[in-house]
Simulated assay, not measured.
Amino acid sequence: MEFAEAMRALDDAVVGCVRKRKKTPKLVVGRDYVTETTRLVDGRSVVFKHVEGSFSNPNGGVAELTANHLVRICADIAGPKTKFIELYAGCGNHTCCMAPQFPGGAFAVEIDPVLVEAARENFARNGVRAEIVCERAEDWIASRESPTNDRDVVLLVDPPRGGLDARTLDVVTREFDDVIYVACDCESLKRDIDDERVGFAARGFELTSLACFDHAPTSPRWIETVGVFKRREA
């Protein structure tokens, strides 16, 4: 406790200290979360809550560049009735940025209950009209009763480094026409494009844009890649 308080007194940037051990409750001195502001090209500033122990992007500057790239994409493809759905939504940061561009509303899916609660707080804090459910993305997409025609949906997927599992990839490429794929690992994205049975190429999608963002400049391996897919008209 003394060490934690000394750290907070030494540096105003330290908002809290957390001790975690397997068999004892988590000890928090100060806060166990940070807030981050992202400034968008449309003039909005959105504030996110990032909770200790759950995934969040450590590179705020590049995350802001990525968010603005996504906002520009959605400005071009959102129609008057279009709905936005995000799978693997985390704390709802993508949904917060893009939901206001979709008159049909926004819906998000995330498996981590801590992040789901943070997302609800982020939606409320930023005045975003969106819903989120706590469920595995692959279970939700396979069993859902879609409230709208999937052809009027822009779907964003931001899966872990392993990419989309086979079942989710099958549903995504079969039932949606506009897909934004945020890939932590470009190799997983390439695999999901090239899958001979249910990949984006096999299902008649065109890759309309591709952008790379170096969220981890100290690593030669991980480059965040954003691909935009549009189903070709028959």
Rank of each mutant, 00 (worst) to 15 (best):
G162F: 10
T24K: 14
A130D: 02
F205K: 02
A183M: 03
A142Q: 13
H215C: 05
A137M: 04
C184K: 01
G92K: 00
E187M: 08
I73Q: 01
R203K: 15
D150V: 09
V109S: 01
P217L: 03
V171E: 13
E5G: 08
T95E: 01
F55A: 08
G163V: 04
V133T: 11
V14W: 02
V182Q: 01
F3Y: 09
G53C: 05
L27M: 13
F102H: 01
S209N: 13
S54Q: 12
R174L: 07
Q101D: 07
T35V: 12
D12C: 13
V226K: 00
E135S: 10
A99G: 04
D112I: 15
C212I: 12
E233L: 13
G162W: 09
S56E: 02
R39Y: 13
S143A: 14
R203P: 03
S143Y: 15
E224G: 04
N122R: 03
V157Q: 02
E187R: 15
K49M: 09
R174C: 09
V114W: 04
G104N: 06
V34T: 10
I77P: 00
V41T: 15
K26D: 14
A211L: 06
F213C: 06
E2S: 11
G53L: 05
R8F: 04
R39Q: 15
A9V: 06
L207C: 10
V71W: 00
E2Q: 12
T95R: 00
A118T: 02
G162H: 12
D165S: 13
D165H: 15
A124S: 13
E121T: 13
G162N: 12
T66R: 08
L40Q: 04
V198Q: 13
E86P: 03
D12K: 13
H69N: 09
E2R: 14
G105N: 04
A106N: 01
T225Q: 05
F176H: 04
S143V: 10
V18A: 07
E224V: 03
I141G: 00
A67L: 13
A108D: 03
A119N: 02
A99K: 01
A63M: 15
L10Q: 14
L189I: 06
R203G: 05
H215R: 07
N122D: 14
G43A: 08
I193C: 12
W222E: 11
G127T: 06
F200W: 05
V51Q: 03
C186F: 10
P220K: 05
D177G: 09
N68M: 02
C212W: 11
A99M: 03
T208Q: 09
L10T: 11
I141T: 00
P159A: 09
F229S: 00
D194S: 11
F123N: 05
V171A: 10
F102N: 00
N126W: 06
G43N: 07
G104Q: 05
V171K: 12
R31D: 12
V171M: 10
G162S: 15
T82F: 03
F176Q: 00
A142K: 10
M7L: 15
G30K: 03
I73G: 00
A6Y: 11
E175I: 03
K20P: 02
A4Q: 04
T218R: 12
V41Y: 07
D192N: 14
